[in-house]
Amino acid sequence: MRLWSLDPALLDRAALIACWREGLLAQKVLAGLTKGYTKHPQLERFRATPNPPAAIGHFLESLYIEATARGYNFDVTRITVRGVPVPPIPLHQDQLQYEHDWLVTKVRKRQPDWLDVLGGGPRAARSFTVVPGAVESWERIKEAAAKPKGASRPKSRSVKTEQGAKRPRELQDEVTTLRVTRARAKLEIKTE
Rank of each mutant, 00 (worst) to 15 (best):
S127L: 13
S137D: 07
I89V: 02
K109C: 05
T77N: 07
R70M: 05
D94C: 01
F74D: 00
T68Q: 06
R126P: 07
G133W: 05
R82I: 00
F128N: 09
V76G: 10
Q97V: 08
A69E: 15
P88G: 02
K106Q: 14
L96C: 08
E139Y: 07
V86F: 08
L91R: 06
I89H: 01
R123C: 10
A125C: 15
Q97L: 11
R108I: 11
Q111M: 10
L96S: 04
K106G: 10
V86N: 07
L103P: 04
G133N: 01
T80N: 09
Q93A: 12
Q111W: 08
L103F: 07
P85Q: 11
D113S: 15
L63G: 01
L96T: 08
E66M: 03
R110G: 00
W138N: 00
R126V: 04
G133Q: 00
V117R: 13
P88A: 02
Q95Y: 04
V76E: 14
P122C: 05
A69I: 03
Y72W: 07
V107E: 08
G121P: 06
T80S: 10
R126L: 07
V84Y: 03
G119M: 08
E66Q: 11
Y98H: 00
Q111E: 14
L103K: 02
V107M: 12
A125L: 14
G71I: 10
L103E: 06
Y72R: 05
L63R: 03
L96D: 07
F74C: 00
P112E: 04
F128I: 12
Q97E: 15
A67W: 05
S137G: 00
L96N: 11
P88W: 12
D116P: 08
D75Q: 02
G120R: 08
A125S: 15
L63I: 13
Q97T: 11
V84E: 14
L91P: 03
Q97K: 09
I65D: 14
V107F: 09
R140C: 11
D116K: 15
L96F: 11
L91K: 10
